[in-house]
Design a protein around this nucleic acid. Sequence first.
RNA 1: GCGGGGAUGCCAGAGUGGUCAAAUGGGCUUGGCUUAGGACCAAGUAGCUUAGUGCUUACACAGGUUCGAAUCCUGUUCCCCGCACCA
Length: 830
Amino acid sequence: MVIKKIKNNNDETINFAAIEKKWQKKWEESKIFQTKEDNKKKKYYILEMYPYPSASFLHIGHVRNYTIGDIYARVKRMQGFNVLYPMGYDSFGLPAETAAKKQGIHPKKYTEESIKMIMKYQKALGNSYDWSRILASHEPEYYRWNQYFFLKMLEKGLAYRKKAPINWCEKCQSVLANEEAEGGKCWRCGEEVTEKELEQWFFKITAYADKLLEDLKKIDWPEKIKIMQKNWIGKSEGTEILFDINGKKWPIFTTRPDTLFGVTFMVISAKHPKLMSLVTKEHKKEADAFLKKIKSSKPEDIEKLDKEGFFTGSYAINPLSKDKIPIWAGNFVIAEYGSGMVMAVPAHDQRDFEFAKKYKIPIKLVVVPADEKFTSETLKEAYTGAGNIINSEAFDDLENIEAIEHITKALEAKKLGKKTTNYKIRDWLISRQRYWGTPIPVIYCDKCGIVPVPEKDLPILLPEKVDFKSKDNPLTTAKEFVNVKCPKCKSNAKRETDTMGGFVDSSWYFLRYCDNKNKEKPFDDKKVNYWMPVNQYIGGAEHAVMHLIYARFFVKVLKDLKFINFDEPFMKLFNQGIVYKDGAKMSKSKGNVVFQTDISDKYGIDTARLFLMFVASPDKQMEWTDEGVEGAFRIINKIFRLINKLTDSKNAEEESKINLLIKRVSENIETFDYPKSIVSLFDAINYFGEKGISKENYKILLKLISPFCPHTAEELWEKIGEKGFISLAEWPKVNEKKIDEKFEQLEKATDKTVQDILNILRIVKEKNGKEGEKVYIYAIPKELEGYNAEDIGRRINKEVKVFAVNDKKKYDPEGKASKAKPGKPGIYIE
RNA sequence: GCGGGGAUGCCAGAGUGGUCAAAUGGGCUUGGCUUAGGACCAAGUAGCUUAGUGCUUACACAGGUUCGAAUCCUGUUCCCCGCACCA
């Protein structure tokens, strides 16, 4: 490891690597970042999404993420909060299993080695984690509680098993939750998702749909994420209308009951399980051909397909008009939403319109806007706006908005329909046909059916000896695991070999941090209720409708099961931006990765932290360029050099500066405007580097820097003879009274004067061809002190004399003193 | 298609009605220091003009509101990120 050693003015060299090691060791040995519940102190729980330990390295994107949290944690700690800031690992998951398959390494070994590596790199960041609270979800001490919660949920009917068409990833050889199969592609490997019909385990997240939506109001999250969750939950209010089909009532969901009289056909999803019961003999051939076609087309193409379908031969009866309505099957109706069949109103719904045109189904107009004159025949596209109702018997002439209510009421009166709410969100599919996950604690018995494993038998340990070469779930190859006795009747039975998806693990890990060593319970409720909810959560936006919605669900369930007394896990959420390189996300496969060590080996980790926090707001995506790193490095060196500029006394100007600095830095850190904080710090460091600084204020400056550059700050803190850790020192408080704008103005006046002088010098040189030698400044008496001849002289590199305008002995051959104004002195150059 | 966020000087990025030719850092230019280099210090970095001034052109493009706009409104182009036939 090569460390760039930089000379400062005293020709000392600073060995950043040694300083980092020294303080990291001291922090660890003194356990200063370990926390306990303390009712006398206000708690603050700050958390970064726990990482998957796949990569045995960290790139600067990781460094950025972790630093964002660490700065906040450090400031909160210094501000006197009892800070919980833990780290752990999301260590179950497919990559470990793939490695096992390909390289013959056992997933456990692979995972544990990865954790060791990533921890080493994380520790080198110097973050103030409480490492004693570490957890990893692949450890039985953790996952046994997944099993425990599963059983609790099973008891309450919140976990259940059903056969359903599900998303299947051929490459991962596993099912995926809806949330994991976004856009028809596997979230992990990007492979096309196909559909399979399998029996699977689900958590009943739909039972919480409304709460999940409602409680978004309670939390301070980026609007974007809230909108994504809102859309995902997809609440829509409408009316359920019962249509009579072959003597049976079929509920049909619609948001437009006002158009009920405009229904000219029905469409059932071509994937509907009961489809064939509607297809008459005469249409069977057609149906088979169509279904074959659908199956053969890729999910990707289905989105682009035209609306197609066929007539089933069956009819429905419109409950109000009593019209006989043909039932079609169509590829554009979603089987799982509503009842999988829709009433089609071609005049007022674009999809229905297209379908009707294609198959020459009649179009019946029932809503007419006030000022337009079109008919069913002249309609070019569906009319979805407001208007008055026609062709609707008793409801004619009503405004359609009113008609919605009237028609719904009429249906309710006849028990032919009711007001209802529908959600897009589906139950959460948790089972995976994979080895490296939490075994689902149930047993299948021929006599007793699905039998939950008794709580006393937990944990169901994942057997280590399995055959990874098996194409199926390797777990099925562990015979002694699979073949068990039924807990109820003791006859031979089979154990469930599906495991839980990783999002179960990550749905409550933040609770376990509060009490990570508990052997009796998942956690002690007193401890959890003290620390939770998380005050500030930090992580990527990609989890908007996965982890972030599951965790909210889980917490709500645990509250209803009386494990905890709060119903939202994360009060504030911060999404960090992604670091790009060469226009793309950093990734190993693209080869555009900049490693933590690329920067830290050369300049030290404090430089890496400072630079990353300085160069762009943490929430913005940024393009990586290491061109500016030197700048951050120089500043750190300046901080070191400043120690040689300590003065004995402080003056009003210095006091003003430092208080303004405290104010700005504190405010900007609070809102994650780290670059602004750092700009203020840079300014101050440059200013004090020039003017010197009292020891007392240097201490303040070091404290303000410490969250960004903790090693540097500790080192200097020690150097100036302070005892104890700066990491535990009290965050400076502003004294607003000492902030005096006058000094800022004087500084600006000096800057302007310097510019003026240089400007004149240039003009003089151009005009007269001679260099000005001496510069005389005539300030009004009140401002005389604001102009320092030495300072200005150094800046313009000339000899400078400053006079008061009323100084009788001043040298002023051209009477320039008369030009002096407040904030703008007279200047004479010769 | 729908929803959200963007487009600022050579680069990265501040800036949301006047105090903005626009923070800060980098790069580049010039000067100082230095045997030299590095480091460090200072100045400059849209154009013209001027004893410290004034003007013009500028914050994707085109319009508009305003005494006044990088900042507000409208439209256009491009980029990113989500969702995608949800009845």
